[in-house]
C-alpha cells in the first residue's frame, strides 16, 4: 500500500498508479455535488445545456455540507453514501470525470465504467465532518444555489486524507477488506 500526494485535475496516468488501500493526500480544486445536483447536470445535458464546470480530469466529492458560520469557509463537510449516485456516475465518467470522493459500496456498472475510463474512487471517513472541514480552504456555490446543501460547489482542498477504495482495475476495498477479516474477532 503506497502513499501519494496528488494534485487535481487528475490524469489517466495518475489514476493508473493507484491501487485499493493506497493512502492519498489530495490537493487542488474539487467539485461538491450529490443527488439533486447530479440530476440537474444530466437533465441539463439532455436539454442541450453545458455542464456548469470543467469536467475533464475533475474530481467530484459527494457532499452536502452544513452551513458555514459567519466568516468561516464551510461547515461540517464529510462524505455522503455513494450508491445513490451510481445511476449518474458512468455518464459523468464518460464526460471526463476522473475521480469520486465518497463512502460506501458501488455497483458493477460504476466499477465497469471506472475500468473503461480510468477513474479512481476515493473513500473519505464518513461522519468526520469537522475533521474534513479543516482541509477545505475555499468554497463557493457555482450552480443550483436553490438546492441549499445540495448545490454544486467549487472547493479548494489541501491534503484531504483519502483511501483508494476503488481502482481502475476493478479493485474494491469494501469487498477485499471484508474478505480479509471475515470470521475473525
Amino acid at each position: 500500500m503506497a502513499e501519494y500526494k496528488i494534485q487535481t485535475p487528475l490524469t489517466a496516468e495518475v489514476v493508473k498508479k493507484l491501487k485499493i488501500g493506497d493512502k492519498v493526500l489530495l490537493s487542488g480544486v474539487i467539485y461538491g455535488a450529490r443527488d439533486a445536483a447530479h440530476k440537474r447536470i444530466l437533465d441539463g445535458l439532455a436539454k442541450g445545456e453545458k455542464v456548469p464546470f470543467d469536467v475533464e480530469g475533475s474530481v467530484i466529492y459527494y457532499v452536502g455540507p452544513s452551513p458555514a458560520r459567519p466568516g468561516k469557509v464551510i461547515g461540517a463537510a464529510g462524505p455522503t453514501t455513494a450508491y445513490r449516485m451510481d445511476a449518474y456516475a458512468p455518464k459523468m465518467m464518460e464526460l471526463g470525470m476522473r475521480g469520486m470522493i465518497a463512502k460506501g459500496k458501488r455497483n458493477d456498472a460504476v466499477k465497469d465504467a471506472m475500468k473503461k475510463h480510468f477513474v479512481a474512487y476515493f473513500g473519505a471517513t464518513g461522519g468526520a465532518g469537522a475533521l474534513i472541514n479543516k482541509c477545505i480552504k475555499k468554497a463557493e456555490v457555482v450552480a443550483y444555489e436553490d438546492l441549499g446543501p445540495e448545490a454544486l460547489r467549487r472547493m479548494e482542498v489541501s491534503d484531504f486524507p483519502l483511501v483508494v477504495v476503488g481502482d481502475c482495475y476493478g479493485g474494491d476495498l469494501y469487498a477485499e477488506g471484508r474478505k480479509q477479516w471475515e470470521g475473525k474477532s
Partner: peptide
C-alpha cells in the same frame, strides 16, 4: 486489529474533539 480500522477510530475521535469546540458539527448530516 486492522490498521486501517484503528486509523478510522483515531479520526472519529479527533473529529469528536474538534466538533466539541462548538464551531463545526460532528457530521454534516
Amino acid at each position: 486489529k486492522s490498521e486501517t480500522g484503528k486509523e478510522i477510530f483515531r479520526q472519529i475521535k479527533e473529529n469528536a474533539e474538534i466538533a466539541a469546540q462548538g464551531e463545526v458539527p460532528y457530521c454534516q448530516d
